[in-house]
Design a protein around this nucleic acid. Structure first.
Lengths: 176, 176
DNA sequence: TACTACATTTAGTACGTACTAAACGTACAA
DNA sequence: TTGTACGTTTAGTACGTACTAAATGTAGTA
């Protein structure tokens, strides 16, 4: 195997590690995905250990996380006890999965807390400073409508089956 | 000032803190922004210290970070040495600023590393396993076109001056 | 000049978390 | 049954980072 190809590979793996870390995921997750993405055939945990330099335990948890996100699929081979994994190559599919995952996250809880705050504000409309109450209402409503827009966007994306380049391109036309 | 209004405020502050943390920013950044966002008038660092419970040092760095992202503006009052700050209320504007900021980040460096990997791959086309070289090219090209789509999207957004609800809504129509 | 009221920066600390090493569980094989 | 080849879980560690407390600017004021 050529020297430069190995170089290119390991640069890519490092790049995906940084990217993963930057996005809030473990570095090892990015590295594992990168290795799988550059492999023509499914790899075992031991293969990943070899190519990433991480421990089997770390690989195990990272790959499981990737699988939960839909970025990696497990492939079982008959008459082979090992689990093999391959990378998802349809990124739009993967993005949808990640967005879906995040729906139940801390982020969404915060968003819905704004909604409930507004509801409470309307509820006991008698007490407290009336001017401040009005101001708060306005601010919270503005924030909520922003959140709603973001929410509609992401949930629209997750609902899509056939999101692909053509969809993205028509969106780009509007933004142009 | 009513008890329940104070409650609503502090719940909101806590929610924004969690949200901030989840998005990869310090909790204190979210808290500072939340306090400013709920205040009818600009606040000093000492005001923020009082309302968040953090130290002045922490507040200082957090507010500066918020200002760099365009989520907060400093307001100087004549004949007053204190700096005052107010929250940006146009979130679409803020989003654009954040996206712009991220253009020079680790994320983008990783993206461009894919591009250069492809270039290198084409360059020394003589050496190494030909089948693997072809496979790598295909995979890297697929990844790059995905990154390009994302990149066009975000840079289109940052270029927009008048991005608002109407734009978002027409995008939503397509995704529908 | 020295003083005051700020903001910023720095040294140190506490905490979360991704990792390693090793114990454990589990299923197939002899 | 024991042995073996896996994957997973756990206890401990190392590291990054957001914070506190305190020192250090810095610009107005007497």
């Amino acid at each position: 195997m050529s020297q430069t190809i190995e170089q290119i590979k390991s640069e890519f793996i490092e790049g995906m590690s940084s990217m993963s870390q930057f996005s809030g995921f473990p570095k090892g997750m990015g590295a594992s995905f990168a290795v799988l993405y550059l492999s023509p055939n499914p790899l075992s945990l031991d293969d990943l250990v070899e190519h990433t330099g991480l421990t089997k335990g770390a690989i195990s948890t990272n790959v499981r996380a990737l699988a939960r996100l839909g970025l990696v699929r497990s492939v079982s081979r008959l008459a082979d006890r090992k689990d093999y994994y391959e990378a998802e190559t349809d990124f739009y599919k993967a993005i949808r999965a990640i967005l879906k995952e995040r729906k139940n996250s801390e982020f969404d809880r915060a968003v819905s807390s704004v909604k409930s705050a507004l509801a409470e504000l309307e509820a006991d409309s008698g007490s407290g400073d009336e001017a401040e109450r009005l101001f708060l209402r306005k601010r919270l409503q503005a924030l909520q409508s922003f959140f709603d827009a973001v929410d509609s966007l992401t949930s629209a994306v997750t609902r899509l089956e056939g999101l692909g380049l053509n969809t993205v391109q028509s969106v780009l036309k509007i933004l142009k």
